[in-house]
Simulated assay, not measured.
Amino acid sequence: MAEQAASNDLAAGIAGQRVLITAGAGGIGLAIARRLAAHGASLFICDVADDALAAFGEEFPDAGRIKADVSDEGDVDRMFDAAAEKLGGLDALINNAGIAGPTGGVDAIDPADWRRTIDVCLTGQFLCARRAVPMLKSAGGGSVVNMSSAAGRYGYAFRTPYSSAKWGVIGFTQSLAKELGPDNIRVNAILPGIVEGPRMTGVIRDRAAQVGVSYEEMETQYLSNVSLRRMVSPDDVGAMIAFLLSNAGANVSGQSLGVDANVEAL
């Protein structure tokens, strides 16, 4: 009976995995960390916020953590060197770090803001993957989960830097899945929709100000394009990632998985 129960456990296989989560000290990243830690994973995270890193250390004193900007190659190298020393290897990379980028018409967007959004949301995933893959190969395989967005499935007016980066994540994910599959490395993308939290509040506030309506009216407009008429939570995303890292997700690769209450359009 115990063996049967274990086979039915959707979290089976996570315990003991060594997992690196970028931007893991807050928001979706923290929800992922909590979910995986509850299932027995060993964690190493990075973030750019000192206060969040300190709070993470208090909640997870045994986990590794470092201040690092994923768009900075030197920071990424230091992070992976520290993770290798702390964890002794790697079984999964969660490429979670990203920024919202600017809101505005394409003719009003500062090129520096464009570059910064691409650098963090897309190039950062490349810089982390290039260091993670040799470690995953040494472990005999593993999993890479790249954070995209519903904006990586639909065009997103007035958010072109963000949407462009997130479409790029889909191409990056599917290419890596083909490249790394023979090495027993699975690569998938998560596409969150409207995720409750400070970042989404800021996006809705900025768009409301741009078109001259109230925050409440703009929020209603956003949710009118969601079939279930609600936002999703960071923990919803964490649950999907736990599935992908578990034995239950052993044959899921190259997929773009929406966690979005069925966003119909942006």
Rank of each mutant, 00 (worst) to 15 (best):
S7V: 11
N8H: 10
L10P: 13
A11D: 13
A12N: 10
A15H: 12
G16R: 10
Q17E: 13
R18T: 06
V19I: 05
V19D: 01
L20F: 08
I21L: 03
T22P: 02
T22A: 05
G24T: 12
G24L: 07
G24I: 06
A25Y: 01
G26L: 03
G27W: 00
I28C: 04
G29C: 13
G29I: 10
L30G: 04
I32V: 13
A33E: 01
R34Q: 15
R34L: 14
L36C: 08
G40S: 05
G40N: 05
S42L: 11
S42D: 12
L43T: 04
F44W: 06
F44M: 03
I45Y: 02
A49Y: 11
A52R: 02
G57M: 04
E59L: 13
D62L: 11
D62F: 05
A63Y: 03
A63E: 00
R65Y: 09
R65M: 08
R65A: 11
I66C: 09
S71N: 09
D72G: 05
D75R: 09
D75S: 10
D77R: 15
R78G: 15
M79N: 02
M79P: 02
F80D: 00
F80H: 02
D81K: 13
A82H: 02
A83E: 00
A83P: 06
A84P: 12
A84N: 15
A84Y: 12
K86T: 09
K86E: 07
L87H: 03
G88N: 07
G89E: 02
D91V: 10
A92S: 11
L93I: 03
I94K: 00
N95I: 03
I99H: 03
A100L: 11
G104C: 06
G105Y: 01
V106L: 07
D107C: 06
D107Y: 07
A108M: 14
A108Y: 12
I109R: 01
P111M: 12
P111L: 12
A112F: 11
A112V: 12
A112G: 14
W114D: 14
R115L: 15
R115W: 13
R116C: 07
R116W: 05
I118C: 13
I118R: 02
D119R: 08
D119K: 09
D119W: 07
D119P: 10
L122I: 14
L122W: 02
Q125A: 15
Q125S: 14
Q125W: 03
A129K: 00
R130C: 10
R131F: 09
M135L: 15
M135T: 04
L136F: 05
G140I: 10
G140F: 08
G140C: 08
G142T: 06
S143C: 15
S143A: 15
V144L: 14
